[in-house]
Nucleic acid binder design. Structure first.
Lengths: 208, 208
DNA sequence: CCTACCGATCGGTAGG
DNA sequence: CCTACCGATCGGTAGG
């Protein structure tokens, strides 16, 4: 095995996983093709063999991060029973994912969305789409909890989705600048207290 | 007036104000000295006459943004009566500042903090210091509302500060990727409802 | 404050 | 997939 074969085995997916991690540190735009190639032990033109331009790579990186988000956060939450428990699980798995520290530079999406929210183009549009999809999921889970009679009929699902997401976004920022353990406890507590205040059946949720 | 004099009149403060705005679009690191010089109509070395390096400029830009934050958000809030009204005002003036759209690329601090939270150094440290200062202010305002008997004695001021700030951070991100007007209404509503639920005297706050 | 320049690095291409 | 190269731009410096 002379290294070429080994490098040849690096799949598109393995390159993209490395790129997601690097993007959390250097930024999705700060991510340079030379740096990424060097970290992977391939040449820059090896990357151009997969993606025609840096922008194409950025879009592929976003898609990879979406797969990761679904795998690590959405899917585990959906294994919980429909209703307020599933909404709570969506927040909890997210905080657990952050606390695990898999990505070296924090949340890929929070970083990239703040980075690109003033730069019109296809990258920003893709990020906005991912964000809208996540919020729509939270809103759907809230609506299902209302339908199940576990949250009051007058609850606004979109407002609740905003509040749950707010605790998640703040958890990333807060944890990376100040004390992480305190932060994650506060981010969990904020949503748990809110849901326990609202729910018609507090026994469905852990103690605050 | 031959232009040189006019350019010469550009004070340090005027350069820094332009830099704060440019940094919200390009990032505090993406901010290039050439671009800033070009926008101001001076040469690059004109900037080096004020700051010895890009990092020095970045620190000065952060300090300028802190002055702006105090002037536009903290000071107006402190003109409200001590207690739950002042805590509410701190959130409201912040959202109003965002809604006004003075900075072309959103919130300087949210952008810069996400950009630098994985890049150790003096810039990150200065941003973390500004963040801690803001949270300490919110916590102090919450503690004062408790002392004044306007919030229940058992309230955790740091937890409440986390929640108020979370709504603010989420307001920036959300407003720049989706509908701004909806977002600001939700960000106001989230905190107002929380404070009205907690307070011993709801007449101190606007209707939810 | 200016012009003119430095080496390093960027995204991207040519040719194999 | 590789090496070798392109023009553009970066932060920073020299000399005035």
């Amino acid at each position: 095995m002379d290294g070429r074969l080994l490098r040849g085995e690096r799949s598109r997916g393995a390159i993209l996983d490395a790129a997601v991690g690097l993007a959390t540190e250097a930024g999705l735009d700060g991510l340079s093709l030379s740096q990424l190639a060097q970290r992977l032990g391939v040449s820059k033109s090896g990357l151009f063999a997969h993606w025609a331009s840096k922008e194409d790579l950025q879009l592929a990186v976003i898609d990879q991060a979406r797969l990761q988000w679904v795998d690590r956060i959405v899917s585990p939450a959906l294994r919980q029973p429909r209703g307020v428990r599933r909404l709570w699980a969506a927040h909890e798995t997210r905080i657990a994912f952050y606390a695990e520290g898999l990505l070296p530079g924090g949340c890929f999406f929070a970083n990239a969305q703040f980075e690109f929210d003033a730069r019109p183009g296809v990258v920003r549009d893709r990020l906005a789409e991912a964000f809208a999809e996540w919020l729509a999921l939270l809103e759907r889970l809230a609506a299902e909890a209302i339908e199940a009679g576990e949250l009051p009929a007058g609850t606004d699902p979109a407002q609740l989705a905003f509040e749950v997401n707010a605790a998640g976004v703040a958890a990333v920022l807060h944890s990376r600048l100040l004390d992480p353990a305190d932060t994650f406890a506060r981010a969990r507590h904020a949503v748990l207290r809110r849901l326990r205040d609202l729910t018609t059946d507090p026994t469905l949720l852990p103690e605050a």
